[in-house]
């Protein structure tokens, strides 16, 4: 079970980080702080407006790409490491 637990903990951390990026791009930059960001120009467009109608969508696509890539890698590692070997070989990971 050790591998499964460590796998899930890493998976949760990755999901959490990607969701923070999702919230910052989609709700933060595009809605909550759009007025402030509109003072910055991006090309010929106000940056907040560009984020709301273009940038956030690109960020969303990138986030799912990263998630699929990194999770696939984590799956392969978890399958390659048998439980017993992992228990013996890996140093104890700090909790939290």
């Amino acid at each position: 079970m050790h591998v499964a637990k460590a796998y899930w903990r890493r998976q949760l951390r990755r999901t959490g980080l990607l969701l923070v990026a999702w919230a910052v791009a989609g709700l933060g930059c595009s809605v909550l702080f759009v007025e402030q960001l509109n003072r910055i120009s991006f090309g010929d467009m106000p940056f907040g407006f560009w984020m709301a109608q273009q940038g956030s969508i690109y960020v969303f696509i990138l986030l799912i790409f990263l998630y699929a890539l990194l999770s696939g890698r984590a799956d392969r590692e978890a399958i390659l490491e048998p439980d017993a070997e992992d228990d013996a070989a890996s140093p104890p990971t700090p909790e939290g």
């Binding site: 999702w22 809605v31 709301a52 956030s56 986030l63």
Partner: peptide, 24 residues
Amino acid sequence: GYDGAVYLMGWTGGYVLLALLLAP
């Protein structure tokens, strides 16, 4: 104008939730 972004972001950002929290 700008306010139309609710549809653009709402109907794409949901896929991030779907991919990370539900689909797999």
